[in-house]
Design a protein around this nucleic acid. Sequence first.
DNA 1: CCAGCTTATGATGCATGCATGAAGGGCGTC
DNA 2: GACGCCCTTCATGCATGCATCATAAGCTGG
Lengths: 234, 234
Amino acid sequence: MHHKLAPMEDTLMVTTEAVGQEGLLDRIRRLVLGGEFPPGALLPEAYLAQEFEVSRTPVREALKQLQQEGLVEIRPKVGTFVREPTRREIVELFQLKESLEGLAASLLARRGDASELSVLRRNLKDSDEAVLTGDKEAYARLVHEFHWTIVRGSDNLKLYEHYERLMNQLAYQRLVVRTVEHPGRIAASTREHHAVLEMIENKDPFGAESAMRNHVYATSREALVTEPALDRRS
Amino acid sequence: MHHKLAPMEDTLMVTTEAVGQEGLLDRIRRLVLGGEFPPGALLPEAYLAQEFEVSRTPVREALKQLQQEGLVEIRPKVGTFVREPTRREIVELFQLKESLEGLAASLLARRGDASELSVLRRNLKDSDEAVLTGDKEAYARLVHEFHWTIVRGSDNLKLYEHYERLMNQLAYQRLVVRTVEHPGRIAASTREHHAVLEMIENKDPFGAESAMRNHVYATSREALVTEPALDRRS
DNA sequence: CCAGCTTATGATGCATGCATGAAGGGCGTC
DNA sequence: GACGCCCTTCATGCATGCATCATAAGCTGG
């Protein structure tokens, strides 16, 4: 069979969506993650189509992708439902998170890129500041950025992509907000962050991985005991 | 807004596709991974639709999912093309593989389920046998099964799912087949497999993780030097 | 009142048609 | 001969219509 080849591409599209506006997939994902629809709720294609002013066809495509991400469950001939992660799945996802972030820290320590390091240092400075002023909102955001910066800084795009999927499934925002409520945890978490950064600065991949894994593990334990709603199932 | 909730489900569908036949997504994926279409080739929706005797709509849905898996690239208004992984991406994926399989070995060592262990022991026995008889085909298959058994045995479904994605992107078969060609590597690989199993039998999570990571790393190095075609890009 | 069957509803699954836009080839000019 | 413009071609992107089937309400007989 004769195959038609793609014309040479010189520009590498790194983002997932074309220009214009936010992709439909992202909009529906935000709807789900935002808690607009409670777990178990039906996501009617017709409703979404009308809501976003498109036809059902692109909506269906997006829903199938969300199913791959594990955010919704499509029951054939019945409908698409918001998926509620079981406690067991949360545990599984945190184990993965530990592994992936450990890898990221290790890779970043090996690379030891100066610009990333300064971003992280700045982040921890701001973070300490937020703790002192008691701005939990800012603290949560900075913690979030700290972790993402390390994953991005690992300079491993595939790792980044898998991490992104993972975090989507964890619906991170809601969990970490709870965690932040515990003052003792904040102090410990801050210490752990500094430890991670120190290891990265020392260009110690093993130490950085270890420190990061310890930190993620501690955080996940806290998140799991702090989130009683997760005990409903499994 | 009033939400329609899902009726209670008692049966948990663990497989991805309903009964009947193999899913369209899998069939197209096999077409791509099978090398039927060379990297860079266009996958015309109309052709696939005719080939699988469906309309373009379900084909489009499947292609969008394959894009998420990183196997194809969809250029808006142009077409869907088989993606050729760059060498850099291969390296990135192997780093991830190392991390994920390390986690799997660690979890399995912690669990220490007897039935999984006997399967692995049996696998290595058959594997040694295949080495002696020089049956490289069987050896490659057994190695494949060894790794998948450990990932399955980790009893972490989310890990399994991410691993599955990862392996799809690696188009494993073609790479490992090359690796098998090197006699020295086979001996080393066999030793490493035994080491991994021994650590798991000892219920030593750290040791198992370490052994597995060493093994995956060694294998990946071999695969990378054995695959000259990967040097074309990046 | 309840169990079993029938039927009505509503949502999905998919085929089809048309609009849109990107490549590539042809043609005319320089 | 080379460059640039136009136009044809073709594949996608999406809207729409209809068949299918799961679900639940209604109905009937016990």
